[in-house]
Design a protein around this nucleic acid. Structure first.
Lengths: 113, 113
DNA sequence: TGTTTACATAAGGATATGCTTATATAATAA
DNA sequence: TTATTATATAAGCATATCCTTATGTAAACA
């Protein structure tokens, strides 16, 4: 059941992805969920700046949030009609696992298992 | 011989594609070369506006131009290192052939064969 | 309860973007 | 040569974008 893509909607999604910070966020989220403070630690960026990028992604519906205690975790929303389009766009990008490994090494990785 | 993609460069390309006009141009150019006046006829847009979009695409190197007499034809540049990335991004978008057919029907299609 | 931690939102400013109109250039035609 | 057609460039303007700082809110903890 393939979704019929619309070029105008696609453009608005590519515009969202056309920012280094958000594109990296999406690539990371395609492998792991992350909370805001992890992104703050990953990008050298203030917390409001990170929150504002996440809000844009959330407003588009590409990303969803789940509160787990004091943390808010973000993850890709696989039921978004353009989810597979986005996955295709980011498929060949280098994965950002090394960044998460740095976090882990610095003891800044949050996990709620 | 796969090219190693860089997430920052990819973001700047997605930003270029994140505009309805430019995304449509690229999709059309992936099938046909076009001259400026065809795009002016296709998009209801002034000629300078069209030229400025094409200039951005040309400056990125994704698109190249060839003068044929009084016309300047634009086409995708297949030797750009991110050419296949772009082709992948636009692969599932609806082709814009109907727009070109309208042009043809109105006698506004330019051809230099 | 009060404090700390995690996050969101508001307001403001610098810069970028995408159009407009006016004008310049390049090729062709008369 | 002059006029016409196709295209590019310049300048200006309205709006969007992305950051900043300040502040609000929600959960956890002492």
């Amino acid at each position: 059941m393939k979704h019929e893509l619309d070029i105008e909607t696609a453009a608005s999604i590519l515009k969202l992805l056309g920012d280094k910070t958000r594109l990296t966020m999406i690539k990371i989220l395609s492998n792991h969920e992350c909370c805001v403070c992890e992104f703050v630690a990953l990008f050298q960026m203030t917390q409001p700046a990170v929150s504002q990028h996440l809000r844009k992604l959330k407003d588009s519906g590409l990303v969803k949030e789940t509160r787990k205690g004091q943390w808010v975790f973000y993850s890709l929303n696989p039921s978004h009609p353009y989810h597979s389009f986005v996955c295709n766009v980011i498929s060949d990008l280098p994965n950002q696992l090394s960044k998460l490994e740095e976090l882990e090494a610095r003891g800044e990785r949050i996990s709620c298992d």
